[in-house]
């Protein structure tokens, strides 16, 4: 039993968007083009959300990396009519089954974080890019919903590797692509059920908060508030 979660330290995060690029490459997210982007249909598993507060000249803007929050009580799963999205009790991950999804987009509307993405058209990928497809992640097609999976394919691989070495999964064996890429080490990933894990310690810190916490969806992505002393 694990409860995989993430902590993003907004003091360390510089909104460089490396996480987004790394995520998209790892997960074969198709590159967009002006037409797709112009119609607000770019698929982004991670977005930088500018949260604006106050007025000039005392304005403040928080740039918050936004990805699937892997809620413990996910509102998206309840509404799916065909069970194309599921909550893994043993891992604490919210998954999406592309081969089951009928593309009704009820989940995308039920998600209060708007992090679910829809394939409005067949991904326009030039043939030359296909060679660089990550074989661990299935490519999507038009008409289905997709979203951040916390790179669950890496978990499967890490478990396999640990099993073949006859050992338990160690901290750091399973890290999503965004966390791995983050140049400023702003993202910490791990098992929230392990009280001594770095991620649990940070999630307990006084600076920790979650987005839309009052909705009670119990997100497993925590943020560490900006400013002040980090410790």
């Amino acid at each position: 039993m694990s409860r995989w979660g993430m902590v993003i330290d907004l003091n360390r995060c510089t909104a460089c968007q490396a996480c987004a690029a790394a995520c998209h490459q790892e997960n074969n997210v198709p590159p967009s083009n002006p037409k797709v982007a112009g119609g607000d249909r770019s698929i982004r598993w991670i977005d930088i959300l500018p949260m604006r507060e106050d007025e000039y000249p005392h304005a403040s803007i928080s740039l918050v990396p936004l990805l699937c929050q892997h809620c413990e009580r996910p509102p998206c799963i309840k509404v799916c009519p065909v069970g194309a999205t599921f909550y893994s009790e043993s891992e604490g991950l919210v998954g999406q089954v592309y081969s089951r999804c009928i593309g009704c987009r009820y989940c995308t509307n039920a998600c209060p974080f708007t992090v679910r993405q829809f394939n409005w058209s067949e991904p326009a990928v030039p043939d030359s890019y296909l060679e660089g497809t990550n074989p661990d992640v299935s490519r999507r097609y038009k008409g289905v919903v997709e979203k951040c999976s916390f790179c669950s394919h890496r978990l499967i691989r890490a478990r396999d590797e640990a099993a073949s070495e006859r050992r338990k999964l160690l901290p750091g064996d399973y890290i999503p692509a965004c966390v791995e890429a983050c140049p400023t080490d702003a993202m910490t990933f791990g098992d929230l059920d392990e009280p001594e894990a770095e991620v649990s310690k940070l999630a307990r810190s006084k600076r920790a908060f979650r987005l839309l916490e009052d909705l009670g969806t119990e997100p497993k992505v925590y943020y560490l508030r900006e400013g002040g002393n980090s410790k």
Binding site: C16, A18, A21, Q25, G132, N134, A177, E180, P183
Partner: peptide, 28 residues
């Protein structure tokens, strides 16, 4: 297939910027 940082490299210590990641798209 994917690009990440060299964890030993003192400049980036395993991190990578979006451009480094996306540079594969230059290759392809």
């Amino acid at each position: 297939v994917t690009v990440t940082g060299n964890p030993l490299h003192p400049v980036n210590r395993g991190g990578v910027c979006a451009r480094g990641v996306a540079s594969l798209q230059l290759y392809y």
